[in-house]
Protein backbone atom coordinates (compact mmCIF):
# COMPACT_ATOMS: atom_id res chain seq x y z
CA UNK A 1 0.00 0.00 0.00
CA UNK A 2 1.18 3.45 -0.84
CA UNK A 3 1.77 5.57 2.23
CA UNK A 4 -0.70 8.37 2.61
CA UNK A 5 0.91 11.77 2.45
CA UNK A 6 -0.82 13.56 5.27
CA UNK A 7 1.80 15.79 6.78
CA UNK A 8 0.17 19.19 6.57
CA UNK A 9 2.87 21.76 7.27
CA UNK A 10 2.15 25.46 7.64
CA UNK A 11 3.76 26.11 4.26
CA UNK A 12 1.50 23.58 2.50
CA UNK A 13 -1.53 24.88 4.40
CA UNK A 14 -0.74 28.37 3.15
CA UNK A 15 -0.23 27.05 -0.40
CA UNK A 16 -3.63 25.33 -0.39
CA UNK A 17 -5.19 28.55 0.87
CA UNK A 18 -3.46 30.36 -2.00
CA UNK A 19 -5.06 27.95 -4.49
CA UNK A 20 -8.45 28.87 -2.97
CA UNK A 21 -7.74 32.58 -3.27
CA UNK A 22 -6.45 32.38 -6.85
CA UNK A 23 -9.35 30.13 -7.89
CA UNK A 24 -11.89 32.49 -6.35
CA UNK A 25 -10.41 35.52 -8.08
CA UNK A 26 -10.22 33.53 -11.32
CA UNK A 27 -13.94 32.78 -11.05
CA UNK A 28 -14.69 36.42 -10.26
CA UNK A 29 -12.88 37.70 -13.35
CA UNK A 30 -14.44 34.99 -15.53
CA UNK A 31 -17.87 36.07 -14.41
CA UNK A 32 -16.94 39.71 -15.05
CA UNK A 33 -15.77 38.70 -18.53
CA UNK A 34 -19.05 36.89 -19.17
CA UNK A 35 -21.04 39.91 -17.95
CA UNK A 36 -19.04 42.10 -20.36
CA UNK A 37 -20.29 40.06 -23.33
CA UNK A 38 -23.80 41.37 -22.47
CA UNK A 39 -25.23 38.02 -23.53
CA UNK A 40 -27.52 36.68 -20.82
CA UNK A 41 -28.73 33.60 -22.55
CA UNK A 42 -26.36 31.41 -24.55
CA UNK A 43 -27.86 29.11 -27.15
CA UNK A 44 -26.53 27.26 -30.20
CA UNK A 45 -27.42 30.31 -32.31
CA UNK A 46 -25.24 32.80 -30.47
CA UNK A 47 -22.52 30.62 -28.96
CA UNK A 48 -19.86 31.79 -31.44
CA UNK A 49 -20.71 35.45 -30.89
CA UNK A 50 -20.56 34.74 -27.15
CA UNK A 51 -17.16 33.04 -27.52
CA UNK A 52 -15.67 35.85 -29.59
CA UNK A 53 -16.94 38.51 -27.17
CA UNK A 54 -15.61 36.53 -24.23
CA UNK A 55 -12.16 35.97 -25.74
CA UNK A 56 -11.76 39.71 -26.36
CA UNK A 57 -12.81 40.67 -22.82
CA UNK A 58 -9.77 41.70 -20.77
CA UNK A 59 -11.36 40.36 -17.57
CA UNK A 60 -11.43 36.90 -19.11
CA UNK A 61 -7.67 36.96 -19.58
CA UNK A 62 -7.07 38.28 -16.08
CA UNK A 63 -9.13 35.33 -14.83
CA UNK A 64 -7.09 33.05 -17.07
CA UNK A 65 -3.86 34.36 -15.52
CA UNK A 66 -5.23 33.61 -12.03
CA UNK A 67 -5.99 30.07 -13.18
CA UNK A 68 -2.47 29.50 -14.47
CA UNK A 69 -1.06 30.59 -11.11
CA UNK A 70 -3.68 28.40 -9.43
CA UNK A 71 -2.71 25.43 -11.58
CA UNK A 72 0.99 25.68 -10.78
CA UNK A 73 0.40 25.98 -7.02
CA UNK A 74 -2.17 23.14 -7.11
CA UNK A 75 0.20 20.78 -8.93
CA UNK A 76 2.94 21.56 -6.42
CA UNK A 77 0.53 20.95 -3.53
CA UNK A 78 -0.77 17.68 -4.98
CA UNK A 79 2.74 16.34 -5.38
CA UNK A 80 3.28 16.80 -1.66
CA UNK A 81 -0.01 15.98 -0.07
CA UNK A 82 -3.03 13.73 -0.49
CA UNK A 83 -6.28 15.01 -1.99
CA UNK A 84 -8.18 14.09 1.18
CA UNK A 85 -6.04 16.55 3.12
CA UNK A 86 -6.03 19.22 0.43
CA UNK A 87 -9.78 19.33 -0.18
CA UNK A 88 -11.15 20.44 3.23
CA UNK A 89 -8.89 23.49 3.13
CA UNK A 90 -10.35 23.97 -0.36
CA UNK A 91 -13.74 24.49 1.25
CA UNK A 92 -12.67 28.07 1.86
CA UNK A 93 -13.31 28.72 -1.85
CA UNK A 94 -17.08 28.74 -1.31
CA UNK A 95 -16.80 31.44 1.35
CA UNK A 96 -14.29 33.54 -0.59
CA UNK A 97 -16.41 33.38 -3.77
CA UNK A 98 -19.50 34.38 -1.77
CA UNK A 99 -17.72 37.45 -0.40
CA UNK A 100 -16.24 38.42 -3.77
CA UNK A 101 -19.67 38.04 -5.43
CA UNK A 102 -21.19 40.28 -2.76
CA UNK A 103 -18.56 42.99 -3.04
CA UNK A 104 -17.77 43.05 -6.76
CA UNK A 105 -20.85 41.60 -8.46
CA UNK A 106 -23.45 42.94 -6.01
CA UNK A 107 -25.01 39.53 -5.63
CA UNK A 108 -27.27 39.19 -2.64
CA UNK A 109 -26.32 36.32 -0.31
CA UNK A 110 -29.26 35.63 1.97
CA UNK A 111 -28.88 33.91 5.34
CA UNK A 112 -30.36 30.77 3.75
CA UNK A 113 -27.54 30.79 1.21
CA UNK A 114 -24.91 31.18 3.93
CA UNK A 115 -26.46 28.19 5.67
CA UNK A 116 -26.28 26.27 2.38
CA UNK A 117 -22.61 27.22 1.97
CA UNK A 118 -21.87 25.97 5.51
CA UNK A 119 -23.63 22.66 4.74
CA UNK A 120 -21.58 22.22 1.56
CA UNK A 121 -18.28 22.89 3.34
CA UNK A 122 -19.22 20.45 6.12
CA UNK A 123 -20.22 17.85 3.52
CA UNK A 124 -17.03 18.23 1.49
CA UNK A 125 -14.93 17.97 4.66
CA UNK A 126 -16.77 14.83 5.83
CA UNK A 127 -16.38 13.12 2.47
CA UNK A 128 -12.67 13.86 2.17
CA UNK A 129 -12.05 12.73 5.76
CA UNK A 130 -13.79 9.43 5.03
CA UNK A 131 -11.35 8.72 2.21
CA UNK A 132 -8.58 9.01 4.76
CA UNK A 133 -10.32 6.66 7.20
CA UNK A 134 -10.88 4.01 4.54
CA UNK A 135 -7.22 4.13 3.51
CA UNK A 136 -6.02 3.94 7.11
CA UNK A 137 -8.21 0.89 7.73
CA UNK A 138 -6.75 -1.08 4.82
Amino acid sequence: MKLLKNHLTLKIYFSVLMTDVTESFGELFFKKGVVATQIHHVSWQNIWVFASHLLTASNFWIGFLFYIINFVIWMAVLSRIDLSIAFPVGGATYVIVAFLSMIFLHEHITSTRWLGILCIIAGVTLISQSTRMVVEKL
Partner: peptide
Protein backbone atom coordinates in the same frame (compact mmCIF):
# COMPACT_ATOMS: atom_id res chain seq x y z
CA UNK B 1 -16.86 -0.98 -5.89
CA UNK B 2 -15.52 1.28 -3.17
CA UNK B 3 -16.99 0.93 0.28
CA UNK B 4 -19.65 3.41 1.32
CA UNK B 5 -18.46 4.69 4.66
CA UNK B 6 -21.12 6.40 6.83
CA UNK B 7 -19.23 9.71 6.71
CA UNK B 8 -19.58 9.65 2.93
CA UNK B 9 -23.33 9.20 3.13
CA UNK B 10 -23.55 11.97 5.72
CA UNK B 11 -21.32 14.23 3.60
CA UNK B 12 -23.45 13.59 0.53
CA UNK B 13 -26.64 14.47 2.38
CA UNK B 14 -25.05 17.67 3.72
CA UNK B 15 -23.90 18.73 0.25
CA UNK B 16 -27.32 18.02 -1.27
CA UNK B 17 -29.00 20.06 1.49
CA UNK B 18 -26.49 22.86 0.95
CA UNK B 19 -27.02 22.91 -2.82
CA UNK B 20 -30.77 22.95 -2.31
CA UNK B 21 -30.56 25.86 0.14
CA UNK B 22 -28.30 27.89 -2.15
CA UNK B 23 -30.09 27.18 -5.44
CA UNK B 24 -33.78 27.14 -4.46
Amino acid sequence: KERMHWTRVAGTILILCGVYLVAR
